[in-house]
Simulated scan of single mutants.
Amino acid sequence: MPAPMKIDFVSDIACPWCAVGLASLQQALSRSADAVQATLHFQPFELNPDMPPGGEDVTEHLTRKYGGTPEQFERNREVIRERGAAVGFTFNPAGRGRIYNTFNAHRLLHWAGLEGPDQQLALKRALLEAYHGRSEAVEQESVLLAAVQAAGLDAARAEAILAGDEYAAEVRVAERTYQQAGISSVPAVIINDRHLISGGQPPEVFERALRQIASES
């Protein structure tokens, strides 16, 4: 009988490796369905919490934050594109274009989680595809609402959330909780509140870990 398993996926819409990691984890869960019955919860992490409206050119941002050259960034993007393709996620060939503030996306994801895990997963995927697949500005209300509709959620309710500050406090509390737990990079996959797998790992790495944890339980 498959072992019930709680998985917290700590991540940011702005993180390309989070798109790779989620697609990879979903493949691993499909492969290990005989041993694992998992419930996914998406937890907030902002890579750029101080990003102003309008965002910043991605190459300028990465140069300022990490150093490096445009050629190095392009090689890194190619690696990410290849890793994404291997797990079924298609990145926009031209890249993201700009880095945006993702706080409102996290507020909507919190709400979607209250609606149910399937709804939250659908919104997470829709947001990742909007940003990394189509280079859309995920700070814009129209883009966020389109993702909500694509996920089958109530766009009028989402619009009301965006018009106020609902779930802002809850998102900030969750962010602090994971930061205080030592999470400093994403994606971070936490299984049953005990086991941490860091980074956008290949499906076989996730599958081995899932099966091992299931056998121990």
Rank of each mutant, 00 (worst) to 15 (best):
A3T: 14
A3F: 14
A3N: 09
P4E: 06
P4G: 08
K6S: 14
K6I: 12
I7H: 02
S11R: 02
D12N: 03
A14T: 08
A14C: 02
C15S: 15
W17Y: 09
G21N: 08
L22F: 14
A23K: 06
A23I: 07
S24C: 12
L25E: 04
L25F: 13
L25Q: 08
A28H: 11
L29E: 00
S30G: 15
D34W: 06
V36K: 05
V36G: 07
T39A: 14
L40G: 13
H41S: 15
F42V: 08
F45I: 03
F45D: 06
E46V: 03
E46N: 00
L47M: 08
P49A: 12
D50T: 12
E56Y: 10
E60L: 15
E60M: 13
L62K: 07
R64G: 07
K65Y: 05
G67M: 08
G68W: 05
P70S: 09
E74L: 00
R77P: 03
E78Y: 05
I80F: 13
E82V: 15
F91N: 02
A94I: 07
A94G: 12
G95M: 01
G95Y: 14
G97A: 05
N101E: 08
N104C: 06
A105T: 13
A105K: 02
L108N: 12
W111M: 07
A112K: 10
G113K: 14
L114S: 12
L114V: 01
P117R: 01
D118Y: 01
D118E: 10
K124A: 09
R125C: 07
R125P: 00
R125K: 15
A126M: 02
L127C: 02
E129F: 10
A130G: 01
Y131M: 07
Y131H: 12
S135A: 11
E141D: 14
A151N: 12
A151Q: 11
L153G: 09
A155P: 02
A156I: 02
R157H: 01
R157M: 13
A158K: 04
A160V: 06
I161H: 05
L162G: 06
A163D: 05
G164S: 04
D165A: 15
E166T: 14
Y167A: 10
Y167R: 01
A168D: 11
A169C: 11
A169M: 13
A169Q: 15
E170C: 04
V171T: 06
R172I: 12
V173D: 15
A174C: 04
E175M: 15
R176S: 14
Y178D: 06
Y178G: 02
Y178A: 03
Y178K: 08
Q180L: 00
Q180F: 12
I183N: 01
P187G: 03
P187T: 06
A188L: 09
I190K: 05
D193A: 13
R194S: 12
H195Y: 15
H195M: 03
G199D: 06
P202N: 07
P203E: 01
P203C: 00
E204D: 11
F206R: 05
R208M: 09
A209D: 13
I213F: 11
S217T: 14
S217N: 15
S217G: 11
